[in-house]
Design a protein around this nucleic acid. Structure first.
Lengths: 227, 227
DNA sequence: CATAACGCTAAACAGTTGTTCAATAAATGT
DNA sequence: ACATTTATTGAACAACTGTTTAGCGTTATG
């Protein structure tokens, strides 16, 4: 009669179907999709293995449901954060602090498996970033670029890549991008050199003409500094 | 009697043991470690599944051997490339062009699984990069940093992250970092905005004080532009 | 030539995988 | 109250997993 006429609920408020999906996201995020068995998901959700398949059709379908949900959550967070002005970091603010499944960790794990849902979400992320950066250029905050879209794409890839390699970044610098970010100084070891490079740059312009920039060493044609 | 008294060889010059390892690297790189079965490796190497285990002890040991080999190859390429002067790109030049197994692709796949061998290699990569960048600062080519080591680490993570996310980068920009790089213009869509950002920066210094930089929006304390 | 060692395989092992099926328990609609 | 769907389970399936064991054929050595 009410909105949740179907779906049994245990002591937890979430329905069984959602509990299974959240358990799957958690395990997929931790060990990867291939290394996670349906049975392990069932145990984590407190449910029979057969129910996992019965609810979602197959393990692959469950994975797709996880992808769709994660993309959806991050989209929401993104549009929430947009009110407080444009943000150069394309990955939305920490979601799991609110009690939900580890969405960021899931993204970090499954970015290389390349699902259509996650890929589409990344495309949107980059489009948004490109739009905001165009605004920034117009308002004089950002410098113009010879390749505005590609610049936004590379910047987004760098941010996402740092998220994917969070384990190495933490070992190297101590900054854990997947930690609950109530304390911003916890990732200062990442953000400080990052902002430093993106504002001041790393190459001295004056000396840039006598020595080639990194990738150009490998034989690229000249790259004019300004259009 | 001669150096290779043991080890049978097929029409291919490589010994069976090496053929197995190369097949494993190729399949691990393509589908990931967990999703690759010992039998699939055996078929690819033209060998019985039992031999794969017999030679390496276990699948995990084989994986370790792959990690060790890949780290070794990349170390060699790195020291080769060092003769032509320091390079800001920490990932050594294309190896599989020489006919060997897809080392770069393997690295891109297994960077998130975190083996001790690969992690150690990354640490060395960053140490090298930090050293070279310190040289660059001394020679006036590079700007000094408030956090020289962290800057090298973040730069390396960005490069490696772009490699890991090569599939998305290619979809977004058309630049395929895993393609055989005989033609440098194939990755120009990545290198051009990248060098642009790292030389000119993206934020206008003049306006940088009235509006916060990306990560600082989330509540970090002030970050002095120069020490 | 006999004997040992080696590279390699076929067959089988026990365990796990995703999935199916029939049956039970619970909730819903009438 | 009954009938009907729905939620959930336990057991079983066939296929696949990494690994083991015994033995083959070849090669080298005594």
């Amino acid at each position: 009669m009410n909105m949740r006429s179907k779906s049994a609920h245990s002591s937890d408020g979430r329905s069984t179907e959602i509990r299974i999906r959240d358990a799957a996201i958690t395990l997929f995020a931790e060990h990867g999709v291939a290394a996670t068995s349906v049975r392990a998901i069932a145990v984590a959700a407190g449910v029979a293995p057969s129910l996992v398949i019965h609810q979602y059709g197959s393990k692959e379908a469950l994975r797709t449901a996880c992808d769709t949900y994660v993309a959806e959550v991050l989209r929401e967070r993104k549009s929430e954060g947009m009110r407080s002005g444009p943000d150069l970091d394309p990955v939305p603010t920490p979601p799991e602090a609110h009690g939900g499944p580890p969405v960021r960790r899931y993204l970090a794990r499954t970015l290389i498996d390349g699902s259509p849902q996650v890929s589409a979400m990344i495309d949107e992320l980059v489009d948004d970033a490109a739009r905001y950066m165009a605004q920034g250029v117009e308002s004089g905050l950002l410098k113009p670029s010879d390749h505005p879209y590609e610049r936004a794409a590379v910047l987004a890839i760098w941010s996402l890549g740092a998220l994917v390699l969070h384990q190495h970044l933490e070992r190297l610098t101590g900054a854990d991008l997947l930690a609950d970010r109530d304390d911003p100084s916890a990732i200062a070891a990442y953000t400080e050199p990052a902002t430093e490079m993106l504002t001041r740059g790393i190459v001295n312009e004056r000396a840039a003409h006598q020595a080639r920039t990194p990738e150009e060493q490998k034989g690229k044609q000249a790259c004019s500094p300004q259009k």
